[in-house]
């Protein structure tokens, strides 16, 4: 292992850990104003919206239909009340079927 790579990895590890650890330890035990509290509690659902769109539609370059079919499968399964693992496996199976029919 060369030293440069080791320094690079260590540096990346440190700067990745800092934003992960600071809020959890600094905000520890502090009562934030109610507005900030509910703002922070809203973050997960907003993050999920941003993590899903537009990414889910762009998973295969140049094939929007692939993303649309995958998104439709995932939303349909989840809407039907399937648990997360079933949504994941089901979407993979449906997209495999799509590929088997349309491209390979």
């Amino acid at each position: 292992m060369n030293w440069q790579m080791l320094i690079l990895i260590a540096g990346m590890a440190v700067v990745t850990y800092i934003p992960r650890v600071l809020p959890l330890t600094i905000l520890e035990g502090k009562d934030l104003p109610p507005f900030i509290q509910s703002f922070l509690s809203s973050i997960p659902y907003a993050v999920l919206g941003a993590l899903i769109f537009p990414g889910i539609l762009l998973i295969r370059e140049g094939d929007v239909w692939f993303g649309l079919v995958g998104a439709f499968a995932a939303f349909a399964l989840a809407l039907a009340g399937a648990n997360v693992m079933i949504v994941v496996i089901g979407s993979i199976i449906i997209l495999s079927g799509y590929l088997a029919i349309f491209s390979f």
Binding site: I52, G70, S91, I92
Partner: peptide, 28 residues
Amino acid sequence: IALYAMFVGLLMPSLKKSIKVLYLALIA
């Protein structure tokens, strides 16, 4: 698709229960 499908699966139960969650996810 796996990670995206997981995000959808995680979002949906709260989405069904609360219009606020729908707005949060949709706007973002």
